[in-house]
Amino acid sequence: MRVNVTNLTFGYDYRTVLKDISFSLKSGDFLAIVGNNGSGKSTLIKCMLGINKIPNSKIFLDDIDITNYKNFRNIGYVPQKFDDFNYEFPITVNEILSASRYSKLSEDDVLLILDKIGILELQNENINNLSGGQLQRVFIARALMNKPKLLILDEPTVGVDKENVTAFYKAINELNQEGITVILITHNLREADCHFTHMISLHNGEGVFKEVVREDE
């Protein structure tokens, strides 16, 4: 998915959180958004998901103004925390994935995704029995259920052990190599062993967008 953000300024009440942010991504790009707490990272993501309402002509997804954009199923989103999910009531991984699936993904495709994310053996497991790392991967699988063209990950490895973090970023790199545009929010770039193509460093709502040139290229 192509993403264009042009001079985006956004605030809550009288406080400006994002100041004049601009960047552009083409299909298959991988953007890292870095910054301290309160720098505006999550606010930027909420603008891109249509949760924060913004004026016309600021964000374009595949050349469509986000204010007119209808198909948010093209965006896979993995939140930082699962506070919004009521996961004390029994529900299996398969049941969550099937309730989230609106694409014509076959059962075999779903199994392939589960295998790639490393949760194939957990498909009939009640999510109350899963660890933080396993739960995180379930939510990535959920984000992939509608064949997304853009994957947005908001600090997805917070509270996940090191072994799972490595497996997690391996899977994300593979998905990106398949052509999915990825936006990753992180405060720990060293931990994120990813093939970033672009980076935004946010500080007090102001961002510097730059292309990443890899040393091995």
């Binding site: 949760i51 199923r73 999910f85 009521n86 309730a99």
Partner: peptide, 19 residues
Amino acid sequence: FYKQMVMISFDETYAKLLG
């Protein structure tokens, strides 16, 4: 409306994203 009801009950925010 089983899928919609399950998604809204378990995760309202994600349900909105799914349209």
